[in-house]
Design a protein around this nucleic acid. Structure first.
Lengths: 212, 212
DNA sequence: CCATCTATTGGCTGTAGAGCCAATTGTTAT
DNA sequence: ATAACAATTGGCTCTACAGCCAATAGATGG
């Protein structure tokens, strides 16, 4: 905790403070859930008065939505770095192998919880809803791009990269739907489901997307 | 609405009133979400004072959990009636065909939302958590039973009915994960995903689980 | 018909959060 | 140095909900 009990007030530029608040909110949303992103909770974490949060985010839902976008954007870039960034850092095959390896790890649990959280909360929060839809499509397009690239390089075979991306993500989301409940009991049957389906969608041999 | 503005009080047996309360809570949970299951909301719907709800459910979380179980139990029996009920009403093949037909309909939307809702809320509500786990396993076992029966009758071919059931439900849940957000944009690629995967898991030809 | 039982009422309190704003204080430009 | 500006404080009100309980009023058995 940034516990500055009640020391002198620290003054930052608006942009910096804003970033700080969003970052704190993203972390709380990721670790404790989006309903814990409250004025008081974020202010406490930053060692600041709750009125300050209101100054930057008069409507709390806007902060919640931005926290979600911040967290999922960072995660997407970690899981599937933009291809164009490094001319030939990863090929599409290795990118997907890496992706399936990463989402199997326990570090992905909080992100699974966040998506579940956001998808439900979207029912009541229009601002969040729009950002969730937007992020869902971003994730999908990122996969689609990689598939399209892979097809061009003849690494994959796929009629409809968009449809394949949608299906792959649906199975990923399906397998992580039980993260808060009966995940334990479903481990084995679901361990390779998404990867296997992806291999089928891309015309790869079984195990073709397993990390070498 | 059962609007009895402020007429005389109606007295019912404890068991009957209790059932009434759970039924009302289940409906609210299904149509508006489990966080709308509040003392006031349920009392209003029944034309009753909110103190009465407290009399039957001193801890509101118990009502929420029971509402969830009530709604999902009814739904499961509607989608996959117990085989033993009718000695030969449906064969396993027809039971699954019917299942996949039903979950494609719009009437299934509220149930999808309820599961999403409950799986997220389980993060914060231990009582609900246990009921969700319990219901998840019931749904899974029901599918497993049908598969086992189908294998016995040589209608299906499947090594591990439990694993197949887990996988089928994961894809069903994955396809319905977007119900509050980008479901529209994903319709086509996901329309037959669960059914197709089930066919593969059960050694059936493509379309073998489509409703004739 | 009366007494007892209990379902039901109609309040009460405490908490947590959102939204709001005048006063204060650190920073920056004149 | 001082004035102007903008970040920050430290409150305020209002709402919704959970949990609780003494009093009331329908039902039921003696």
């Amino acid at each position: 905790m940034t516990s500055r009990g009640s020391g002198k007030q620290v003054r930052k530029t608006a942009a910096e403070r804003r970033r700080e608040i969003v970052a704190a909110a993203a972390q709380v949303g990721l670790e404790e859930g989006l309903e814990c992103v409250t004025r008081q909770r974020i202010a406490d974490g930053l060692g600041v008065q709750s009125g300050l949060i209101h100054h930057y985010f008069p409507v709390i839902e806007e902060l919640v939505a931005e926290a979600f976008t911040s967290a999922t954007t960072a995660e997407l870039d970690g899981l599937l770095p933009e291809a164009e960034a490094e001319p030939d850092g990863y090929g599409p095959l290795r990118a997907l192998q890496r992706f399936f390896a990463l989402i199997s790890g326990a570090e992905f649990d909080n992100i699974s919880k966040l998506w579940l959280n956001a998808r439900h909360l979207s029912r009541y929060r229009p601002v969040l809803h729009d950002q969730v839809v937007s992020q869902e499509l971003r994730w999908c397009r990122r996969i689609e791009q990689i598939i399209t690239q892979g097809v061009k390089e003849r690494a994959f075979h796929c009629e409809d990269p968009w449809a394949a991306a949608v299906r792959i993500l649906a199975v990923v989301d399906g397998a992580s739907a039980y993260i808060n409940t009966s995940a334990e009991q479903r481990m084995e049957p679901l361990a390779d489901l998404a990867r296997t389906l992806a291999e089928a969608q891309l015309g790869l041999p079984v195990g073709g997307l397993r990390m070498p």
